[in-house]
Design a protein around this nucleic acid. Structure first.
Lengths: 144, 144
DNA sequence: CCCATATACTTACTTAGGTAAGTAATTTTT
DNA sequence: AAAAATTACTTACCTAAGTAAGTATATGGG
C-alpha cells in the first residue's frame, strides 16, 4: 500500500465513512446499515444475494448487517419462494425516515465534494472505475 | 453513502486491501502491517505518534498493529528520551525483506493501475485530494 | 515546589468486512 | 428416484479501525 494513490483512496474512504457516521448517529444508524437501507429504498424488497451483489461485499457482511437492522426495527426478512432465500424489506418506521436521512447524507456528500465541479466528479468516477483487479487480463474483461 | 462516487471509492479501497493481502500472505503480513513497515523503511525509527500522523489513523490502531509486528519479529520498540514515547524500528529480519516486498507490492499496484496513464494517475490523485471534510455550520460547531 | 493540564500511549468495546467451514434447500447427474 | 453437486445463507474467527476512558510521563502556572 505504498503507492500514494492507494493511500489517498484508503484515506478518503475512511473519511467518508466517518463523516457519514457522524450524521447517522442522530438516527442511531451506521454507514454500512444505511447502505442497505438505501438499497432497499431504491429497489424495493430483495434477496440478500441481490444486496451483496449490488454492494459488492461478501454474503456474511449482509447477514450481519441485516440482523442488526432487524433488531433495531429498520428492516424485516421474510422467506422467499425458494426457501433458502430470505427477502429483506424496509419496515414502516424505515419507510418514514429514509427520505429524510437521504437528504442529510446527500447534503454531507455535496459538502465533501464542494471543491470539485460536476465535471470533475464525473472525471473522478471514471478514473476510479479504471482501477481493476490485476489478475483480470484483457480476455477476462471480454468474457465479463 | 449513496453517492456513486463514494460507493466507488469505498469499493476500490477494499479491492486494493484485498489484493495487497493476497500478495502479503506469502510473507505472513497484512496490509495494515505493511503500511507501517513501509513507513519505517522510508523514514527510519519514529515514534508511534509520527506513524499515526503520517498514516492518518488513530493512535490505538498503531499500538495494535505494532504489537503484532513486534510479536512476529518485524518491528521493535524502544523507549525514547521522553519516557511516554515508544520509538518503533525495523528488525534485521524486516530490513532484509522489506525491499523485496516493496517490489512485489509496486508490481501489484502497477497492474491495478494498468488502464490509467501516468497523467491519469496524477489527475486521479489530484481530484481525490480535493475531497474534504465538509464545512461545519455554526450550529454544528455549537453542538460539538 | 506542587498542582493542574496536556501529551503519548494503552485498553476495552464497537462497527466493518474478509475467509473458511457448516447447514439446509434446490438442481443436476446418473 | 437416489446420489452428487450447487446455491443461499449462517456461524465462527480474523484483521482493520474508530471512540471513550484509563495510565504514566511532561510541562507550565501559582
Amino acid at each position: 500500500m505504498e503507492n500514494l494513490l492507494f493511500h489517498e483512496i484508503h484515506q478518503k474512504s475512511r473519511l467518508a465513512v466517518k463523516e457519514a457516521n457522524e450524521v447517522l448517529k442522530e438516527f442511531e444508524l451506521y454507514s454500512a446499515q444505511w447502505s442497505i437501507l438505501f438499497c432497499l429504498k431504491q429497489f424495493g424488497p430483495m434477496t440478500q444475494k441481490e444486496i451483496w451483489q449490488y454492494l459488492n461485499v461478501e454474503a456474511p457482511t449482509v447477514t450481519r448487517t441485516l440482523a442488526k437492522l432487524e433488531e433495531s426495527g429498520w428492516a424485516g426478512r421474510k422467506e422467499g419462494p425458494d426457501k433458502r432465500q430470505r427477502i429483506a424489506c424496509l419496515t414502516p418506521k424505515a419507510e418514514a425516515k429514509v427520505t429524510e436521512i437521504e437528504q442529510r447524507i446527500t447534503g454531507l456528500e455535496d459538502g465533501m465534494l464542494a471543491d470539485l465541479t460536476k465535471e470533475e466528479q464525473e472525471q473522478l468516477k471514471g478514473l476510479l472505475k479504471k482501477i481493476k483487479s490485476p489478475a483480470r487480463t484483457e480476455k477476462d474483461v471480454q468474457n465479463g
